[in-house]
């Protein structure tokens, strides 16, 4: 291999030898984010996410639920608006958040290929690896943004409708509001990392096809299928390795003594999915014939 390298360098197309201008990657990323966030579809989806905590908050305000009713934490919202964040995340995690992640990630490469802009992107001085990195960063940012929208709207609505108070943990112990807010930050970070696994899966699926809709549907399908497998009792032994199994594991942060080891293990599992899917996406993009 080494002897043929000079030949390869000499024969390499200009985008292989072009120097990386400082800030080029940042500009590429900024362009990507402008594109993604400028889409009406994506703005509408973020709007739907913002509505989730609002609807729950208003509903609880109008009729106080009894203990044990509805989704987890629902009965606690009336006493402490902070729980609106957790309820909204619990409600949004099975479908709404995967929907947003699926649409953004599925569209990332396949959308460009479908509209014929992928080869123009590759014609500018940027390698396929760097293009994938920008796309991955863009999808990751949107994933984080989606979770933040749910959490921040939940926090604001909760604060306005019910006020924020000391937090009763799952263990029955009460901690200060500051401690509770710190735990909420931890919950948001955990959920974002958990969704990264699905986002990376979507990015890989997106490199497989030129049909963006198919890639989006497949990505959401991954989340639904994983949740289905999780519900089959016979698959209990492998359930712990499923993509979606530990998504609600953020509850660990709401115990008096969170099991740091478990949280780390689950997050590493999600990051392992990221590593596998990203390397698959990279290999696929490297070997793909980009014709459109």
């Amino acid at each position: 291999m080494s002897s043929s390298e000079p030949v390869a360098a000499a024969a390499a197309p200009p985008w292989r030898t072009a120097p990386h201008l400082p800030g080029a990657f940042r500009r590429l990323y900024a362009g990507e984010m402008r594109l993604v966030l400028g889409r009406r579809r994506n703005q509408a989806l973020l709007g739907v996410l913002a509505v989730v905590p609002l609807v729950i908050g208003v509903a609880v305000r109008l009729s106080t639920p009894r203990n044990g009713d509805g989704p987890q934490f629902l009965s606690q919202i009336a006493g402490n608006g902070l729980f609106l964040v957790f309820t909204a995340l619990t409600v949004a995690l099975p479908f709404f958040l995967p929907l947003v992640v699926g649409v953004v990630a599925g569209d990332s490469i396949a959308g460009e290929a479908g509209t014929g802009t992928l080869r123009y992107l590759l014609a500018v001085p940027v390698t396929r690896g760097r293009l994938l990195a920008v796309k991955a960063l863009g999808v990751a940012s949107c994933t984080a943004l989606a979770v933040l929208v749910v959490a921040l709207v939940g926090l604001l609505a909760g604060a306005v409708l019910f006020g924020l108070h000391d937090v009763t943990l799952l263990s029955g112990d009460t901690v200060s509001l500051a401690d509770g807010l710190l735990r909420t930050v931890g919950v948001v970070v955990f959920v974002v990392v958990a969704l990264f696994g699905l986002a990376a899966g979507g990015l890989f699926v997106s490199t497989l096809t030129e049909n963006a809709i198919a890639a989006m549907a497949t990505t959401i399908g991954i989340a639904v299928f994983s949740a289905l497998l999780d519900a089959v009792p016979e698959l209990r032994p492998i359930a712990g390795a499923l993509l979606t199994h530990h998504w609600l594991g953020f509850g660990e942060l709401l115990r008096t003594a969170p099991d740091g080891g478990a949280l780390l293990r689950w997050s590493l599992l999600h990051l392992a999915y990221v590593a596998v899917f990203l390397s698959l996406a990279w290999a696929r993009l490297q070997t793909k014939d980009v014709t459109s």
């Binding site: 203990n67 987890q72 619990t90 799952l170 609600l248 509850g251 709401l254």
Partner: peptide, 29 residues
């Protein structure tokens, strides 16, 4: 003893002459 569930927990706390139980899902003590 804290029994762990997904987004739920039940605790039995014995301290001296007091035994407390708490269930997060029903918030009954």
């Amino acid at each position: 003893l804290a029994l762990l569930g997904t987004l739920a927990e039940s605790d039995v706390v014995h301290n001296g002459s007091d035994v407390w139980t708490y269930a997060s899902s029903t918030r009954e003590v």
